[in-house]
């Protein structure tokens, strides 16, 4: 004969199983963002094409570095530089024009590097071939790939820039990745962004 307490025990077991099952259901967050990211099955070779991502690639070059084996493009520098080519004046001998340095480069404010030991022109500009930049070790660098030079000292920023945590992507999140060069935002001669007034203002929170 089954007693009441036996029946009670069975009921408890059933309830425990139900609660356990319910607990498991609550514990697994299948829909939160992190698990959705982890569970993303389809590995995408590149960003999806949306049909309207027609990028003008005329003023970009393929970067000399890759992120996760994916090549990307950088905006060119030579075509927007004011006085390129440098070899139009600097042809391996002294320039004999009165006040040539003031006229040609007087607008440059050099605020780069340590205050006590600021960078000299020739720290970055190649002395023998003026159309190129040069690293401390003497590696010749093209102006379009000036990020290679900046990255020599600012290697953390460069690593972030390659991955996408520093710098700016141009116009499209989809399609081929095109990023701005360091010099789009930072004046190489005084790289710190200047203080300015904000573009607009916000009204006080009323609600």
């Amino acid at each position: 004969m089954k007693t009441v307490s036996e029946f009670y025990k069975m009921a408890m077991v059933v309830m425990q199983v139900v609660f356990l099952f319910y607990g498991c259901q609550q514990g697994s967050h299948d829909n939160d963002v992190n698990s959705r990211i982890k569970n993303a099955k389809t590995v995408m070779e590149s960003q999806p094409e949306t049909g309207e991502t027609t990028m003008v690639l005329s003023n970009t070059v393929i970067a000399q570095v890759k992120h996760k084996d994916v090549p990307f493009r950088v905006e060119t520098r030579k075509d927007v530089m004011e006085r390129f080519k440098c070899s139009e004046c600097h042809i391996g001998k002294k320039v004999h024009v009165t006040k040539a340095d003031k006229v040609a480069h007087g607008n440059i404010k050099k605020l780069h590097g340590n205050k006590e030991r600021p960078l000299a022109c020739n720290t970055c500009h190649m002395k023998d071939e003026r159309d190129f930049l040069v690293t401390e070790k003497g590696v010749k660098i093209d102006f379009n790939h000036s990020y290679q030079l900046c990255g020599h000292c600012h290697f953390r920023e460069k690593a972030d820039w390659v991955g996408g945590a520093h710098g700016k992507r141009v116009s499209f999140w989809a399609g081929e990745r095109v990023v701005q060069n360091c010099t789009e935002c930072h004046d190489p001669h005084s790289p710190k962004l200047t203080k300015r007034w904000p573009k607009t203002y916000s009204l006080p929170l009323s609600e």
């Binding site: 995408m44 499209f172 999140w173 935002c185």
Partner: peptide, 30 residues
Amino acid sequence: TGRLPACVEICPTGSRVFGNLLDPKSEIRF
């Protein structure tokens, strides 16, 4: 249509990152 949001495109400091979370090679995932 594949473009960046207006706030991301204009940002003068590059503080804003936008992209596809399901793409392991995207900037947001980095």
